[in-house]
Amino acid sequence: MPKVIIAGAGLVGALNACFFAKRGWDVEVYEFRKDIRQMEHVQGRSINLALSHRGKSALEAVGLKEYIVTQGVEMHARLIHDIDGKTIHRQPYGQPGEHIVSINRRHLNEVMITEAEKFPNVRFFFEYKVVKADPKAGCVTFNHVGNIIESKGDLILACDGAHSAIRRSLMAYPLFQYSQEYIEHGYVELNILPLNNDYALEPNVFHIWPRGNFTLIALANRDKTFTVTIFAPFELFEKEMYDDSSVLGFFQKYFPDAFNLLGNEHLTETFRRVKPLPLISIKSEPHSFERKILLMGDAAHSMVPFYGQGMNAGFEDCLVLSEILDEFDGNIGATLDAYSKRRCLDAHSINDLAMYNYNE
């Protein structure tokens, strides 16, 4: 059977491993981090994910939809919180019964890695850092605790994130178009703990505190906590949230109801420990190189999170690749050519929609 090398054991890499495991391919997944299932804290973004139809369809194709959906919290509407801390406005998602699902990024990732490992043809290699990729030779070079290791495959999938090492090694490739844009906003993540052993806020909605050019959001978790994220211009963080007193004053003024639930100690401790993290939008074209390497997920089209489709679009990448591979009877070269032509337009479009939603 053909061999696929997957760089990155994040959401898109792990789901791709499930897809190709079911095909019977030999699958090798290389990840520069340690196994997240054995880590107390995981570096990188942990903004809760909103699983929509696009993502559910991909999970359904590998038999994970029903389990994953039950691990999340249904969200049937947006709930807008006014600045008075009392008035709210409900905006339903679509028709009655339609909803998206709030789900924890880490748990979702762990489930998919564990699912892929059930197949004897799948192997994961942790703490392997990509050094470079050679699309003509179908080879990827890794550094593992100081040792240089090469692996060759019939197909190489770059699922190694917005700062993809494989994409970086291809930057000088003729006619490769690439653009990146950091927006003026950053984010800090917080948590609301359970109140009297129950949710402190209504759980089955997407909570939003819109305040002009900054906003706070909250999504429920199964353990009755809420993942809370503030998005604001870096300049605003510097001028109005620079020490304990200013942070508490800012939240009390603009988010009075959330402030009471977050608490003084949690706010000040978090802002002492954490600096606002950046958000990037990336476009690339083509996504395929020498009919051997394919950029997928954030490595191909990282987007700002305000449209809620980053993970969903990455999952859809996996499904589209699988469908095109069927269409061309397993011909890898023809599949990658067709995938890149079709997917670039879609990826650029959804990136633009995410940016438009950010501006709105």
Score class of each variant (00 low, 15 high):
220 A>M: 00
244 D>M: 04
187 Y>Q: 06
228 V>A: 06
202 E>T: 12
175 L>C: 08
346 D>H: 13
43 Q>V: 10
333 G>E: 09
188 V>Q: 09
130 V>D: 12
246 S>F: 07
300 A>F: 04
70 T>H: 09
345 L>I: 14
124 F>N: 00
87 T>D: 05
172 A>P: 02
160 D>Y: 04
220 A>S: 04
294 L>A: 13
313 A>Q: 13
343 R>E: 09
52 S>A: 13
96 P>E: 03
273 R>L: 10
231 F>Q: 04
327 E>T: 10
133 A>K: 08
339 Y>N: 06
76 H>Q: 02
316 E>T: 06
46 S>V: 06
113 I>S: 01
237 F>G: 03
89 H>P: 02
86 K>T: 10
238 E>R: 14
81 H>Y: 08
186 G>M: 08
210 P>K: 03
226 F>E: 01
205 V>L: 09
81 H>N: 01
197 N>A: 11
241 M>T: 07
279 L>M: 15
278 P>S: 12
253 K>H: 13
235 E>Q: 12
21 A>V: 02
173 Y>H: 14
3 K>H: 14
315 F>K: 02
151 S>T: 11
343 R>L: 02
347 A>P: 06
34 K>I: 00
183 I>W: 07
168 R>A: 14
100 I>M: 14
282 I>V: 15
243 D>R: 05
354 A>G: 01
45 R>C: 12
76 H>N: 10
172 A>G: 05
285 E>K: 13
269 E>M: 04
303 M>G: 10
252 Q>R: 13
240 E>I: 04
1 M>G: 15
347 A>R: 02
313 A>N: 12
327 E>M: 10
354 A>C: 03
265 E>K: 15
164 S>K: 04
222 R>E: 11
348 H>F: 05
119 F>H: 12
